[in-house]
Each structure stands twice: as C-alpha cells, then as structure tokens.
C-alpha cells in the first residue's frame, strides 16, 4: 500500500476509467465527491473522467457541476444532464454513451461510497482480469455507519435470503459501488429490465448467469445527512 502512494505510479497505464455519477438534488454532495475523486485519482495516477448525469435537479446541482467543470477542466468533468428524473438504469445507459473509458465505475454521489476505494477496485480488477468488481458491505472490513439495529437486521436478513435462494456468488447484491468493463456493462444493460433497488441485484445475478467473472472489494458506505448538518 505504502509504495502505491508515490506520485502517480500508474501514469503509463493505458486504461481509462469513466465514473458515472447520476445526481438528483446533490448540490451539497457533488463538490465533495468530485473533490475526493480528483484527489484519489490524482494520487494513484489512473486516467479518468467524471460524467455527471443530472436529472434536472431543482436545487441547482447542474449549476454547481458547471462550476466544478470550470475548476477541474472539461476533459475531467463531463456534464450530460437530462431534462427530468428518468431513473437510474437509463442514467447509466445515457452516461455510458458518452464515456470514453474502457472501464466504467458506478457509485452514488451522496458520499455513501468513498472514492478512496477505487484504486483497490482497479487493482482487484487487474489481479484476476475480472469482468466486474463489486463493493461489499458484508465481508472483511466492509461495514456501515449510523445504522440502527432494525436496519441492520433487515439488511442482513434480506441478504441471507437472497444468498440462499439465488446463490449469486457475490456477497453484496444491492450494493451500487461497482467497476465494470465497458463492454460487459453494455451487454448487461441490454438485458436488465428492472428498476431502482432491484436493478443492482439483477445486474449481478445476470452477470453470474452470463459467466462473467466477479471480484469483490470491501467498501464502507456512510450516510451523510448528519455530517452535512454539522
């Protein structure tokens, strides 16, 4: 780990990572997530771009995104807004169409996923040439913050049930912090029909059906509302 902290060790790498950030009313969080992404991509030296797909947020997320674009440059921050709220699945299709990277990273813009794990995702992917790498809250150092007993119970219970019934070969089905090879994500998007919460689950179950290889990284989702109040 320590040796990786040397300045931009992966600069010669030809791979490019497109981060898709679907946003809706994230004017507070968007600058923070972008800042963290720039920080960690900068330190690790991987080639990247951030694609912000804003679904017409009434809080002016897009305006903030434009400011960020001015700060970090049009080659790093791409804005691909849509007129109204059209859902997560179509946001990924829309964003992917504009992605120039050969890898796609999807994550939440609300800081429940920490960009510091991205270098781990990338290393994991290279380790086994995985088709997709999924973050998991259920193994290793993965975990949650600020969840009460009820929420933990529901989360664990639902996860246990799906593991037993579907045996998908991945320990966190509903996690939405993932790295895909672009062509793998494209072929999955063509097949997926569900929306919202279930969509993440369908993606990974189908990936298993199509014999794509899945790697796992432990990640730490953290809720944010309380943090920003302070």
């Amino acid at each position: 780990m320590a040796s990786r902290k040397a300045a931009q060790p992966n600069k010669d790498n030809k791979d490019k990572y497109s981060v898709l950030l679907p946003t809706y009313n994230e004017r507070e969080n968007l600058p923070l997530i972008v800042w963290l992404l720039v920080k960690y991509f900068g330190e690790s030296g991987f080639n990247y771009e951030i694609i912000v797909i804003d679904d017409g947020s009434p809080d002016g997320t897009l305006e903030v995104a434009e400011q960020l674009q001015n700060i970090y440059g049009k080659d790093k921050i791409l804005l691909r807004p849509r007129a109204k709220k059209l859902g997560l699945g179509t946001a990924y299709i829309h964003g992917m169409g504009h992605a120039s990277g050969n890898f796609i990273i999807i994550m939440d813009a609300d800081l429940s996923h920490h960009p510091k794990f991205i270098p781990q995702f990338i290393r994991k992917q290279k380790e086994g040439d995985y088709d997709l790498v999924s973050g998991t809250r259920y193994q290793g150092d993965g975990g949650v913050y600020g969840w009460d007993l009820r929420r933990k119970l529901i989360s664990r219970g639902a996860n246990f049930l799906t593991q037993v019934l579907l045996r998908p070969g991945a320990s966190d089905l509903t996690g939405s912090f993932r790295l895909y090879k672009k062509k793998v994500l494209e072929s999955l998007m063509e097949r997926c029909v569900s929306k919202g919460y279930v969509f993440q689950m369908e993606m990974i179950v189908r990936a298993r059906q199509l014999n794509y290889t899945i790697g796992e990284v432990t990640d730490v989702p953290t809720p944010t509302s309380w943090m920003l109040d302070s």
């Binding site: 920490h114 259920y138 150092d141 949650v144 600020g146 664990r156 219970g157 953290t222």
Partner: peptide, 22 residues
C-alpha cells in the same frame, strides 16, 4: 443472521476520516 447483525462493522473510524476530508 443474528450473528451477522451483531458483528456488522460500525465504521466509526471511516466516518471520522470522511468528516475530516469533507
């Protein structure tokens, strides 16, 4: 399920780190 709920990681450390970074 009971065991996993009881041992679910509470990532206080990570939360503090994030707060600093924010």
């Amino acid at each position: 399920v009971g065991y996993r709920v009881a041992t679910f990681n509470d990532c206080d450390e990570a939360a503090r780190e994030l707060q600093e970074q924010i």
